[in-house]
């Protein structure tokens, strides 16, 4: 049986037929794939993972993202039909913009291009104390830096320990320590909230 990664690789190398095959397998969203990824780890613990990339989008051409890594290494990231993209939630490819930050996981091809399984646009996962709550915004002290977090109706949820996610964020309190997963607004100190994790 071909692995999901083999299908992704053929989607890039083989063109259309591979893409159709990938789609027929169902979503290439990351969660569904992890159970099948129990092969031996190829990368030495502590070492950079060649199948992972981070940086900011410099340009977009057709289905390819040219990304400048924060370490100043360029990445060419190919998005195929089955690639899952996230930007405060699942989004189509045209939601990607030059200037967006990203993390991407996929399969590194022989020419150095990364065939993407998943691309997370502007995703941040920060912890801190709530300094202030006013209307639909929440000010977070994150390592001494203030981050202005926006509640996005229909998108933002809170998870209080093992309780199911709720759109009601009214239980959050000033001085409480929380984790906020969200989408950074590029070149600002502002974040749109996807999930607030609260221990109680």
């Amino acid at each position: 049986m071909r692995s999901r990664r083999d299908v992704l690789r053929s989607a890039v190398l083989g063109g259309g037929a591979g893409v159709v095959a990938a789609t027929a397998m169902g979503s290439l969203g990351p969660e569904a794939a992890f159970a099948a990824q129990k092969t031996a780890q190829k990368v030495e613990p502590g070492a950079p993972d060649p199948d992972f990339a981070e940086g900011r989008i410099r340009s977009i051409k057709d289905n390819t993202l040219l990304v400048l890594g924060s370490n100043l290494v360029f990445h060419t990231i190919r998005v195929v039909d089955g690639t899952s993209l996230w930007k405060l939630g699942p989004v189509p490819f045209d939601a990607a913009r030059p200037g967006d930050g990203l993390y991407a996981r996929g399969v590194r091809m022989p020419d150095g291009m990364l065939a993407a399984e998943s691309v997370w646009l502007n995703i941040v996962n920060i912890r801190g104390h709530i300094k202030n709550i006013a209307g639909q915004t929440l000010r977070l002290d994150h390592n001494g830096h203030e981050v202005l977090c926006h509640v996005v109706p229909g998108k933002s949820v809170a998870i209080h320990s093992e309780s199911p996610p709720t759109a009601d964020l009214s239980m959050l309190k000033v001085s409480q320590h929380v984790q906020i997963l969200g989408a950074w607004r590029p070149d600002t100190n502002e974040v749109d909230i996807a999930t607030v994790f609260s221990p109680h």
């Binding site: 969660e31 990824q37 996230w86 996981r105 997963l181 999930t195």
Partner: peptide
């Protein structure tokens, strides 16, 4: 790290 977490779960899961 994001590289490690994304090997076992989606970054968007958070926890």
């Amino acid at each position: 790290t994001p590289a490690a977490y994304s090997q076992i779960a989606s970054l968007s899961s958070g926890l």
